[in-house]
Design a protein around this nucleic acid. Structure first.
Lengths: 230, 230
DNA sequence: AACAAATTGATAATTATTTATCGATATATA
DNA sequence: TATATATCGATAAATAATTATCAATTTGTT
């Protein structure tokens, strides 16, 4: 599956950021970037031109030093007494976190959660093309959910035909998660956004990001207990 | 809203863990506990009695030292050459992360995501009681989703009547998120699991945990780009 | 033009988290 | 019984992330 779309690989390379700009980027910083973007988009729509790190920090309940350190990764420099140019920041952040031009989302498993994710506005807003859903339920196949077609899971190998970076959003039951992931890998997928609670085993060239609601529930529970003492 | 259910407060205190057992617990550790639980539950169902930190670590692709440090918080001690008692570990972890006996979940906003979360099996599995959904859509009010009643959002203040710790799962549109959160606070909620992309402002006695899919998408995107260099 | 205020960005300090090292111990085996 | 081995748990080291300090700079004000 590494052999497909040699041309696309080249196109992609051209659009890549210099490696060292990504290198120092750490997880907490990356996770904050979309939060900055949301604030910047809003300020921009209000007609504002500049913003201070302090202002952003207050909106997010974090420290302004953290904001400045994060923003430094974009290469955008602020002016003392003034702050940062909002439009430059938006460009700078998007350059770091936006997907490459042709990045396609395929949703696997159009159950409750899958159907909900098909309606997630963030895909388009952040530059992803959500193409279709795959399911094995004959009653769902042929229908559309949020205007996206639901296709037979047997058709999944055809995604290799689609040019660009293809991301699979895995929303199948846990007991078929690993085998479905393997089909995705064979189909030439570059990344899996894993909403099952299974730890997937995939080759190194495939990027996996797992969501885990039970982890969050645990945090909520412990925070509540800690909060009871205050 | 701090004045309700004095008796329940007392009951709750009795069930609380010693404060210092929670104190050192850090976020990464808390987030791993449910992952350990899943493995332990599975091993237990297979009839296994003991497990080594190395085995757990391999399943999760983490370091065994991390596992041992995490498990130390449970107070359970393992045996050299043998490992840990699975049943003791399960008890120990649940003691830390399980909610208090009567912890109720209310879902606010029965849209796509909300409806999906109503079907989330993790609530029951981890000891939460999912009671009802609230919505403002008259076509939804009076119906059930995943066997849970959908009630008018006007009824929300009545949750203060329900004994126990009440958690609100916030799935409303972003533009009404803050105002809905304030209603929840007035209604005596103790925690909010926030699935909107708004940073909520709530009093200190209310615990908030925010999910943010766009943060995850950013991580996925950057990881894909980094992976392209390898 | 001098000064005050706001804000950045660099460096340093602190705190959090992961990873390494290693002695101690329980079990199995020769 | 002695020895080898797996494994824990304590301590230490290394890495990551946040927070503090402060000089430099830009703008506005007297």
């Amino acid at each position: 599956m590494e052999i497909n779309c040699a041309e696309d690989q080249i196109v992609e390379k051209i659009e890549l950021l210099p490696e060292n700009q990504l290198k120092g980027l750490r997880l907490p910083t990356i996770r904050r970037f979309p939060k900055y973007l949301r604030i910047l988009w809003e300020l921009s729509s209000m007609g504002r031109d500049v913003v201070s790190s302090e202002k952003i920090a207050n909106e997010l309940n974090i420290d302004s030093i953290t904001v400045r350190k994060d923003l430094a990764f974009t290469g955008i420099i602020g002016k003392p007494k003034i702050g940062y140019s909002i439009s430059l920041l938006i460009n700078g952040i998007e350059r770091l976190i936006k997907p490459n031009n042709q990045t396609n989302i395929f949703l696997i498993g159009a159950g409750n959660l899958g159907a909900a994710l098909l309606g997630y506005k963030g895909f388009e807003k952040h530059g992803y093309n959500i193409i279709a859903a795959f399911d094995s339920d004959p009653y769902k196949i042929g229908t559309t959910i949020h205007n996206k077609p639901v296709l037979s899971i047997d058709k999944i190998t055809e995604i290799v035909e689609i040019p660009g970076d293809n991301i699979g959003v895995l929303c199948v039951p846990g007991n078929v998660a690993q085998q479905t992931a393997e089909i995705l890998v064979k189909s030439g997928i570059r990344a899996i956004w894993n909403f099952t609670n299974v730890e997937l085993k995939v080759p190194g060239h495939v990027t996996v990001l797992s969501e885990d609601l039970s982890s969050s529930l645990a945090v909520l529970s412990v925070n509540m207990k800690k909060n009871a003492y205050k």
